[in-house]
Nucleic acid binder design. Structure first.
Length: 376
DNA sequence: TCGTGCGCACGTT
DNA sequence: AACGTGCGCACGA
């Protein structure tokens, strides 16, 4: 049960950030809620998780980072906005309506995909097809299913998704923007479907809800988690559809990796991949070195970008954020890099190397692949 | 230092 | 072409 008060604050904050053209990520949300309402960030985070589970808030991975969306506002894929619910300003109350129509899809978002934190990794979902999760949500809409399958086609902007909400596993959403359009997947356990209704249900759930959320709140902390949602992964990974993806990334070899795509354009990417890894390594060491900074967070995309730009890469090469992201995702997928829950990039733990990517990675790989293609 | 506003590039539909 | 998203930068407090 998320507290109505928090729900309102959080949704309001998300809307505010969006209107400011700032990414509604955990950090900003917590900060803004704290500033505006004095709420404790941990509490905010916990409430956010609940909202995610309730699907009042969607957790998505967009352009390589985690973003949170107001479920009530997402969706309407139709461009024509029939009308912006003006009112609802932010609160989520209006969810009902909106949701009902659409399901959220990605609004145009290019990205909605599920996200997750790191948990999935270990889990290795194998079962993909089956979701271990019991699927609390009963509601599944028929339609959803169909689309689900399609999900994989990949979301565009997003890089990857994973499940679990921070901490609790369940709640993330994936909306893939795939071409199909709407597909949001909620991890919440539903293994599959639910998303669509989610919104609607969300409303109702909002208050009483909990049905799903019940999962547990576990540790709030996220980090650890283990549990994650297999379901999600299942969606993704399992999907039979993935075009080529499933292949393990064996290729990781350093440059050799380029092999992935024969297209020439990729070449630069490949090389960029190496530079990227080197950049992360360098930045990581730098951080580490500097004062034992344990506190210092691992480098983020921004930092890496900055580093790369100072390193001068291929002549004439244009280092756009997007391009770096794509390559970054690819390296993550290959296991040469690892993304932390907060979206920072680090080197993989020694033990695990590139070798095994984890479901999440796989997924990202998929997407990545698509992205890569597109990119060029 | 932090919160905002917003131009602009990108990706999707 | 219309949109949604969010980075990066400028500004004000």
């Amino acid at each position: 049960m998320s507290e109505p008060k928090y729900r309102e604050w959080i949704l309001e904050t998300i809307d505010s950030l969006r209107s400011r053209k700032a990414r509604p990520d955990l950090e900003r949300i917590c900060r803004m809620v704290r500033r505006r309402h004095g709420s404790d960030p941990d509490k905010t985070r916990a409430e956010l998780e609940k909202l995610i589970q309730e699907q009042t808030v969607l957790k998505v991975s967009y352009k390589g980072s985690i973003s949170y969306r107001n479920a009530a506002k997402v969706q309407r894929k139709c461009r024509k906005r029939a009308e912006p619910t003006t009112d609802s300003s932010s609160s989520g109350e209006s969810l009902g309506e909106q949701s009902k129509h659409a399901s959220f899809n990605n609004n145009g978002d290019s990205a909605l995909s599920l996200t997750d934190q790191e948990e999935c990794e270990d889990k290795e979902p194998e079962e993909r097809g089956v979701s271990p999760c019991p699927d609390p949500l009963p509601q599944t809409s028929p339609s959803t299913l169909e689309k689900e399958d399609k999900i994989l086609p990949l979301p565009s902007g997003n890089s990857f998704v994973s499940c679990g909400a921070t901490g609790h596993s369940a709640g993330s959403v994936k909306a893939s923007a795939s071409k199909d359009k709407r597909l949001v997947d909620v991890a919440g356990g539903s293994g599959s479907s639910l998303q669509r209704d989610a919104a609607s249900s969300a409303n109702r759930r909002a208050e009483g809800d909990k049905a799903l959320g019940a999962g547990h709140e576990d540790s709030e902390d996220d980090e650890r988690e283990e549990k994650t949602c297999p379901s999600v992964s299942s969606a993704v990974s399992s999907s039979p559809k993935l075009p080529a993806a499933p292949k393990p990334k064996l290729k990781v070899g350093a440059k050799g990796s380029g092999a992935r795509c024969s297209d020439s354009p990729e070449e630069s990417s490949v090389d960029l991949g190496d530079r990227l890894v080197a950049a992360v390594r360098s930045l990581s060491e730098r951080h580490r070195g500097s004062a034992a900074t344990r506190g210092h967070a691992p480098p983020g995309l921004k930092e890496i970008l900055g580093y790369l730009s100072t390193q001068r890469g291929m002549p004439g090469e244009k280092l756009t954020r997007n391009r770096v992201k794509v390559v970054l995702e690819r390296e993550i997928e290959r296991g040469r890099l690892r993304r932390t829950r907060l979206g920072h990039i680090t080197l993989p733990a020694r033990g695990m190397g590139a070798a095994k990517p984890s479901a999440r990675l796989l997924k990202s790989a998929l997407q990545d692949g698509h992205l890569a293609k597109k990119v060029t």
